[in-house]
């Protein structure tokens, strides 16, 4: 069976079921991403600060925030007064508008 170029995902959907964990993981990432972006819209934060505000473990915030840094949503700012933690802020482009 031929699938139209550019619309082949639809074709595979006919034969392959997306596992539940995958959709759950997507929901979790989207939720955490939106939460982090929302908090960072109010100003620069360090990982421990974000962890406290969101009630998420620091290693989890670290992982998700570093992913957002890689994806280009977030950038690093200065370090705190004790030179221990970086502040992170949103990138000034339209990536974070949604």
């Amino acid at each position: 069976m031929d699938a139209e170029k550019g619309k082949t995902a639809k074709f595979l959907k006919g034969t392959r079921t997306v596992p539940r964990e995958v959709t759950e993981q997507l929901k979790y990432f989207t939720k955490t991403k939106n939460q982090l972006i929302k908090v960072l819209k109010e100003g620069e934060k360090t990982i421990p600060q974000l962890s406290e505000i969101l009630g998420l473990p620091t290693d989890e915030v670290m992982f998700q925030l570093m992913s957002l840094l890689k994806y280009g949503n977030v950038q690093a700012a200065d370090m705190d007064d004790r030179d221990e933690y970086f502040y992170y802020k949103l990138k000034d482009d339209d990536k974070n508008k949604s």
Binding site: G6, K7, T8, A9, F11, V22, Q25
Partner: peptide, 23 residues
């Protein structure tokens, strides 16, 4: 990464060369 793909097709829609092929 098909194991973690939700088959939403977003990648295909933006691909300028239509090189993505789920078949």
């Amino acid at each position: 990464d098909i194991e973690n793909c939700t088959l939403c097709g977003a990648c295909e829609r933006v691909c300028p060369t239509q090189c993505i092929d789920f078949t």
